[in-house]
Design a protein around this nucleic acid. Sequence first.
DNA 1: TAAATAGTGTCTTTAAGACATTATCGC
DNA 2: GCGATAATGTCTTAAAGACACTATTTA
Lengths: 257, 257
Amino acid sequence: MAEQEPGPLAARNSAGFEAPAAMTADPVVLAPLHGRLHVLLTRRDTPPQVGRWALPGGFMNPEERAEETAQRKLTEKTGVGAVYLEQLQTYAEPGRDPRGWIPAIAYLALIDATVLRDESSARWFAVEELPEPLAFDHARIVRDGVERLRGKVWYSNIAVGLLPETFTMPQARRVYEAIGGVRHEASNFRRELEQSGLVRSTGEVVKGVPGRPAALYEFVSRQPAWSLRRSRQPALLARIAVAGEPRDSLPPASSAV
Amino acid sequence: MAEQEPGPLAARNSAGFEAPAAMTADPVVLAPLHGRLHVLLTRRDTPPQVGRWALPGGFMNPEERAEETAQRKLTEKTGVGAVYLEQLQTYAEPGRDPRGWIPAIAYLALIDATVLRDESSARWFAVEELPEPLAFDHARIVRDGVERLRGKVWYSNIAVGLLPETFTMPQARRVYEAIGGVRHEASNFRRELEQSGLVRSTGEVVKGVPGRPAALYEFVSRQPAWSLRRSRQPALLARIAVAGEPRDSLPPASSAV
DNA sequence: TAAATAGTGTCTTTAAGACATTATCGC
DNA sequence: GCGATAATGTCTTAAAGACACTATTTA
């Protein structure tokens, strides 16, 4: 490890042991912007590391759940609430914060795409072009957040927060492309997203723009949800009619269909 | 939230704010045993909740990384080190610990299958038959750990720690079946695991047992690794020879092949 | 009618479930 | 040889990449 001075902030509990000096909740707020994935950062205006860009997080208190802290800090910085928030990871390496023993619980946050706007001291940065250096270990935390989002986007409705109430297939496709940093063939994208069961057509169409009008879709659920089909369903197999005794000492398969 | 008494343990930092009273690292140690997935628990012998079964974790200190604490506690309880350890999640709900504000960083841990043995006060429990109630919120933590393991087992070499240095296909299959709680058709299992690129044949076979001798395999890497192929590789597509201008404002696709 | 954009259909390859068949051991 | 177990081969269905084609709007 790096040599570590005690730092200005320390704490001791009533049993006499050293305790964490504090704990922070730090949201990694991601959103597609101009076709690319961006992260929301604020410039530090109090020591240490004044002037560096950092995640818009802050200190927790004992009465608040960590999500609530992250949510609150986010609202303070952007004026809107997150529509999606999930715990990412906790960073507790000794020396990660020069002030002392201060673990950080990081969150992955997505905010409503319709309220993307510059606000106060916060700014959006393309995740591939972060300013250097970021405060503390925040560069690594951002990396972890991007990775998580990219891994989850196909099998969950996590993109709910990145699309308006209703949206068209091409619109959704551009968001998915920005998140993943990849291209999707239009007709295949439509097929996959429709078959995922995560969205449903509203029956309405968009008017007033050149070209064939696009059908509008909405998410079946706006609560966190995962697409079901992970493996193919059994083909035409002749189901065991006899009371087949298990070959091994396994309980009957209880796959979550 | 639930009403919360302050609890006997409290801390305050040098800036005058309340700080976490302590922080724990709690490993969820999983292993297949008798064909089913088990978790290692210890009986609490100090207040609070004396007598309840709990995860074999303990308090962190400022000089130690959280993984190290989890690893150390695990060794103290089982006599062996974890061969796999990854952060699961952090539990910081107010009131989760009656002693005070004590967040827990949970780890998913797997130990070497060849050293599974009862030891000290620790005992193995089938994850579907946990004693009730577990200490604190440990039942939920165990559930989260099992879910994580089951989700990852196919696309990573996480099972490294649950199999000996070299192993046969039927042996690996039984471990995967125990983890997932499902059955796998033997020949399909072989095909999938071989194609995953995670294992490789050693060229040797097992002797001295009835039946056709089984070929021995080993993991290509014992470091945490993920299977590559997540989507099929492009078929026979006529690659763009011209400098095709992108249709949208997207950068050229940089899919991680 | 032309340009632009959305949507449909289908050819192809790969992944994967099911299961019959073959191989090789100990006794 | 027989029972036991491992390994191979293959038939089938579904998922998914590629791309030609059709449909519907605005200007």
